[in-house]
């Protein structure tokens, strides 16, 4: 009995390792950008410092997982003083919360190269589950993950009510990795 449990664990463990090894996608490059309307005009911004841990097999997406972190202190909107403001406690409070975190809870295939994932997104001390559609394209032996989704900035304590700054922010993420 103990032996079989041990074996089982060993088997599961080995399987996990091999799945990890086999489906591991190594990040080559990443782009994170966002768009928000301010006074009716689109403001474009970006963030850097993305790290990601991706296990993904297009044939078995439900076995995969995607997690990542992002450094809000790298935010850029084209106006230095505005970036500074976005980093303070009214918005990202980067001193107390140096990472934005995202972790998939489940991934599934929709059709073709389209997938959907349920993720927990943590910004500052607020964690929410969001569902996002993404596509995965294979090009030159690389996977390209693309997603575009909207969040309400106030759901994550980013700023207050504003008559000029919209609540909804559109976020675009593109990850490129080698299987």
């Amino acid at each position: 009995m103990p032996k079989s449990v041990f074996t089982l664990i060993l088997i599961l463990f080995t399987f996990a390792v091999s799945a990890q090894e086999k489906d591991q996608v190594n990040l080559v490059s990443s782009e994170v950008s966002f768009v928000i309307k301010n006074a009716g005009i689109n403001v474009d911004g970006s963030m850097e410092g993305l790290t990601a841990n991706i296990l993904f097999n297009p044939k078995k997406p439900q076995k995969g997982s995607i997690s990542g972190t992002l450094d809000p202190a790298t935010i850029k909107t084209g106006i230095g003083m505005r970036d500074k403001h976005l980093k303070n406690e009214d918005y990202f409070d980067v001193e107390n919360y140096p990472q934005i975190k995202m972790q998939s809870n489940s991934l599934r295939k929709l059709q073709g190269n389209q997938y959907e994932g349920l993720f927990t997104l943590t910004i500052k001390d607020i964690t929410r589950e969001i569902s996002l559609p993404f596509t995965v394209t294979e090009e030159n032996d690389q996977f390209i993950f693309d997603t575009s989704f909207e969040i309400n900035r106030q759901d994550f304590g980013l700023g207050d009510d504003s008559i000029i700054l919209s609540d909804m922010v559109k976020i675009n993420i593109r990850l490129t990795g080698t299987p």
């Binding site: 301010n38 006074a39 009716g40 005009i41 403001v43 106006i79 505005r82 000029i164």
Partner: peptide, 14 residues
């Protein structure tokens, strides 16, 4: 007016 918005002036000088 567009530049005033693009440059972020409008956030403070609303």
């Amino acid at each position: 007016e567009v530049i005033f918005a693009e440059q972020g002036c409008v956030t403070c000088h609303t």
